[in-house]
């Protein structure tokens, strides 16, 4: 059962990752700082997923990147574009209304343990 559960919950989480990442990019972040701020909020993300995801978001023009070479270690920073911010807001509303609906469904399932 645990294997199935793992794959199901991975599937559940997959769709939310983009939203989680977008939410953190309203301020400028580099790869590892993003990992830390996500983990700080309890969101775990495979780094092998995160870095390619950032690149994909850049290709879709939701974020833009810049290299900071002033420090000892060069870092690539990402931040939302105007278009990205717009998409993020839409997506956030979508998620909030979806989760409200789901909450209602789950609350009425008979084995409720909600607080």
């Amino acid at each position: 059962m645990s294997n199935l559960l793992d794959s199901l919950s991975t599937e559940l989480r997959r769709g939310t990752l983009t939203l989680a990442v977008l939410s953190q990019l309203q301020t400028q972040q580099y790869g590892y700082s993003l990992v830390q701020s996500l983990e700080g909020s309890g969101v775990t993300i495979e780094q092998s997923t995160l870095y390619p995801l950032l690149r994909r978001l850049e290709k879709q023009q939701l974020v833009e990147s810049s290299w900071d070479t002033t420090e000892a270690r060069p870092r690539k920073y990402y931040i939302l574009t105007d278009y990205g911010l717009e998409v993020y807001k839409e997506l956030k509303n979508e998620w909030l209304s979806n989760s409200k609906q789901l909450y209602k469904l789950l609350k009425g399932d008979g084995l409720s343990e909600f607080d």
Partner: peptide, 14 residues
């Protein structure tokens, strides 16, 4: 090149 550099800096961050 770009991905290589980014990966290197990310790995070093970790």
């Amino acid at each position: 090149e770009d991905i290589g550099l980014e990966l290197k800096s990310s790995i070093e961050d970790m």
